[in-house]
């Protein structure tokens, strides 16, 4: 009979089993972050003083807009190339397809520092790209490519394209093949099938991928730090400087709050939209 009583108390058992993980997340994640956010509203200068100071600073608003801009470029470029690549991968024959998936997983499992470092070797003043351009006589003196917004965007696209490809391959493979066959057997050209059937069905997946890439690049640290330096300061590098170099805890907390609010709003808004427009909701 003990077994049956065990199941009857199932509610309690469930709570007990999730308790350690729940307490860990509440105690070490929610409470510390809530404390950071609350701290910014308890400033002696007034409740919103840190935010007024933030948005009154030309430098800091520039950093916010630069971060948004870099994330937007990264997202758009990753979406376009990720989708085209995922489309080709999803139609590749079996063996080749698994090889292509492995080739996308591998960079994803390689650390962000290593991947940013690779671009440091390529884009540097004496880097491979400059050496090649010089030896081919295309330029007369080395180009300054590092520490530009372009360098950061390239590094970020490199970071996120594999993620986009992998998540879109999953999306494209979940689209029932009958739907596409129906479209072509009813006379639609391959292009029409692509634009009018495949793409609309992939939109929810594209949104999820875009959110992943946007929030990922919005909060990335290592890539902008190595490829952008001080000249391309973004929110994450500014947060690190404020906290670890200037010991400006209120300033750092303000940046942390702005990052959290923007990230969570985007995730919530987009997941809401993706759910509403999903034509094949499961």
């Amino acid at each position: 009979m003990t077994a049956r009583r065990f199941w009857r108390r199932s509610g309690a058992t469930g709570w007990a089993l999730t308790a350690p993980a729940t307490l860990a997340v509440i105690g070490f994640l929610i409470v510390p972050i809530a404390a950071v956010i609350a701290g910014t509203f308890m400033d002696p200068r007034g409740a919103f003083a840190p935010y007024i100071a933030y948005f009154n600073s030309g430098f800091r608003t520039t950093v916010l807009f630069r971060t948004l801009q870099i994330s937007a470029f990264t997202t758009i470029i990753s979406l376009i190339f990720g989708f085209m690549t995922a489309y080709v991968v999803s139609r590749a024959p079996g063996k080749l397809k698994s090889l292509l998936i492995v080739a996308a997983v591998f960079p994803l499992l390689t650390g962000v520092v290593v991947r940013a470092f690779a671009w440091l070797i390529i884009l540097g003043r004496n880097g491979i790209l400059n050496q090649t351009l010089l030896s081919l006589g295309i330029v007369n003196e080395p180009l300054e490519m590092l520490y530009t917004q372009g360098a950061v965007v390239v590094g970020m696209v490199y970071l996120f394209v594999p993620l986009m490809v992998l998540s879109l391959v999953g999306v494209l493979e979940n689209i029932p093949k009958d739907v596409l066959q129906a479209s072509s057997s009813l006379g639609a050209s391959p292009m029409a099938t692509f634009w009018q059937v495949l793409l609309p069905l992939a939109v929810p997946g594209l949104i999820v991928g875009a959110v992943l890439v946007f929030t990922g690049s919005f909060t990335a640290y290592a890539t902008p730090q190595l490829l952008g330096g001080e000249r391309q300061t973004v929110l994450a590098t500014l947060l690190q400087q404020r906290a670890m170099v200037s010991f400006d805890w209120v300033g750092a907390s303000t940046i942390a709050t702005i990052m959290t609010v923007i990230t969570i709003s985007i995730v919530l808004a987009m997941s809401h939209i993706a759910r509403r427009i999903n034509p094949m909701a499961t």
Binding site: G11, G14, W15, T18, A21, T22, V25, I26, F28, L29, I30, V31, P32, I33, A35, V36, T215, F218, T219, Y221, A236, L239, Q240, A243, W249, A252, S253, A256, M259, T260, T263, I264, V267
Partner: peptide, 27 residues
């Protein structure tokens, strides 16, 4: 069990990692 419990365990990848690192340092 309530549905939000599942969301709770995803929070560490939902909030920006860098914010989480800073919050842990502080508290």
């Amino acid at each position: 069990l309530p549905k939000w419990l599942g969301t709770l365990f995803v929070l560490p990848i939902l909030v920006p990692e860098i914010v989480f690192g800073f919050a842990l340092l502080k508290s």
